[in-house]
Nucleic acid binder design. Structure first.
Length: 516
RNA sequence: GGUCCUGUAGUUCAGUGGUUAGAACACUCCGCUCAUAACGGAGGUGUCGUAGGUUCAAGUCCUGCCAGGACCA
């Protein structure tokens, strides 16, 4: 069982490259696991976060019904499935009825265990910013810009987060791989060590949220609401709204859960979420894969600079697989990275067209020359395990275990490097064996070389499939393979029906970059 | 103000104490011609931000500083 999630995206913002990055990363991991696991054993979840004051205000501003507003933006995120070729199994919305039930059950659990109490949220409130201003920025009832503030005392429910400092620290210590890359773990530990305050988990200042059952003028804090999506999507607390019943099936998924998230929401996932779960006697998720942010041409992406990268536009202009590949080949997954359109075009042209695409094309063109009735009969040397003295065979054989390790550790960039290392060796192998000469001088040797290369191409295409699904399928279709699973790696092929290859990727003219 | 990250070849980045610091792209030359003028080989460039310190040994650890960035209050 594997359970991969993206954060649920807040409907107050439209899809941008950050959303695309997280979603595609999750998709890559899900697709990889599906090669080796039964499809139904891999659950990939995404969705939208729809409650909160900002959403309510945005809808009011546009003078439309709040739910209608959510439906509209939520569908934009749902449509990313087609644009980015995402393979999620379930799209959750926090306005879904079964999600609301789960959140209320969670509240009930936290309350029963004695971790919720009612008190007052006090502080200086700025009407202008619609937010509480921290005490150290307040002077004589005015903020740093001299705007007058109002001292508010709002009734609120609190979660006893302060009781979880040691429990969290113990958890981190006993689960050193909880957060990847590990540098983010240091950040979290030092945050928790610095002390935790109880957390306000209800609001009375607006209504767009899930009302507390016994005290409906309070709506539940958006983050408590939102984080619960990870367990409501698998019905961890049961589907019957009237009672809590733990599902064994859900637990199997939960024990293998991987949350993907950007570094901006690390605290919520690494501190609050485990605290809520521990409080409710539920295990924290297995892994958090944290990633960095994209800059554009060295500058921070922002609406005011007008340099935001619209993933939909890029995909339409250059293609989906091209975009998916670039995101992980260019970045060092986990850390900040820079987007430049020129860099993008270079990666597509050099890696995808020249190295991988051309390898497939040149080898299959050669194979076609000797195919009889469209069938290429493989010689014994297609079985890579029998060619361990050959560099390319021995490395390809080892690749599977290496890649599994990389995926388990969230090393997506390393993964691509390892595969392209094989591609480079394969191209070298073609050059040194010179099959275009062998075809005239030594047909047996020619068949051996091409057979080995075809097998390598099949394997690396399977391994590239999670990143570039449509292109990998196209490459495999040239040799009559339409299934994507582990069997393809293990099957001993006698002969393969060949199609005349066509280019998998089209080279991008550099001029296109500036001319739109 | 606190915490954290980054600063390495012209560019984008690897390199989490140990031989002459690496890759890709760009550049030059050579080979090959099966392939989308694609592929392969050879060539060299770095005050590893800066100033100290620890060590037999530091890009790698520690401290100060400079520059850029993120999160939080």
């Amino acid at each position: 069982m594997k359970y991969i999630t993206t954060p649920i995206y807040y409907v107050n913002d439209k899809p941008h490259i950050g959303h695309a990055y997280t979603s595609i990363a999750a998709d890559v991991i899900a697709r990889f696991y599906r090669i080796f696991e039964r499809t139904e054993n891999v659950m990939f979840l995404t969705g939208t976060d729809e409650h909160g004051q900002k959403v309510q205000k945005s809808a009011e501003k546009l003078n439309i019904n709040t739910q209608d507003f959510c439906n509209e933006i939520s569908s934009q995120f749902r449509n990313l499935k087609d644009t980015l070729n995402l393979s999620y199994n379930y799209f959750i919305r926090t306005t879904d009825e079964n999600h609301k039930q789960t959140v209320l059950k969670m509240w009930q659990l936290l309350e029963e265990k004695g971790y919720i109490y009612k008190s007052f949220y006090k502080g200086w409130y700025s009407q202008k910013d619609e937010a509480f201003i921290p005490d150290n920025e307040v002077n004589d009832g005015k903020d740093q810009n001299g705007n007058s503030l109002e001292f508010l005392k709002e009734e609120s429910y609190f979660f006893k987060l302060s009781a979880f400092q040691d429990k969290l620290l113990n958890f981190y210590k006993s689960h050193p791989d909880f957060i990847k890359p590990s540098s983010y773990m240091k950040e979290v530990v030092s945050f928790v060590k610095s002390g935790l305050k109880d957390l306000s988990i209800s609001r009375t200042s607006f209504t767009w949220g899930i009302p507390v059952t016994k005290d409906p003028k309070h709506v539940i804090y958006v983050w408590l609401d939102a984080l619960c999506n990870y367990i409501s999507a698998i019905n961890y607390l049961g589907s019957d709204p009237s009672k809590i019943e733990y599902s064994e099936h859900a637990k199997e998924y939960w024990d293998e859960s991987i949350h993907l998230l950007g570094k901006d929401i690390l605290k919520f996932h690494a501190v609050y979420w485990p605290a809520f779960l521990i409080a409710a006697d539920i295990n924290p998720p297995k892994r958090l894969f944290v990633h960095g942010w994209w800059t554009v041409d060295g500058q921070k992406m922002s609406k005011s600079l007008g340099n935001t990268v619209d993933p939909i536009q890029i995909v339409n202009k250059y293609g989906c697989d091209e975009f998916r590949y670039f995101l992980f080949k260019e970045s060092n997954f986990g850390y900040d990275c820079n987007f430049s359109e020129n860099g993008f075009v270079d990666k597509i042209n050099y890696d995808l067209c020249n190295d991988y695409g051309n390898l497939v094309h040149r080898v299959l063109t050669l194979a076609n020359k000797v195919a009889i009735n469209g069938i290429f009969k493989l010689s014994r040397s297609f079985d890579l395990s029998k060619n361990i003295d050959s560099e390319i065979s021995s490395k390809t054989i080892k690749l599977k275990e290496t890649l599994k390790k990389y995926i388990n550790d969230g090393l997506l960039t390393e993964y691509l490097k390892a595969v392209f290392d094989i591609i480079s060796i394969a191209n070298k192998y073609v050059n040194t064996t010179e099959p275009w000469k062998l075809i005239k001088t030594d047909l047996q040797k020619f068949n051996d070389v091409i057979s080995e290369l075809i097998k390598v191409i099949i394997d690396i295409s399977i391994f590239l499939y999670p990143f570039i699904p449509e292109s990998a399928k196209k490459a495999l279709s040239f040799v009559g393979i339409s299934e994507i699973n582990e069997n393809v790696l293990n099957t001993i092929y006698e002969g393969l029906p060949l199609e005349k290859p066509t280019p998998i990727f089209n080279k991008i003219d550099n001029k296109k970059v500036n001319n739109g």
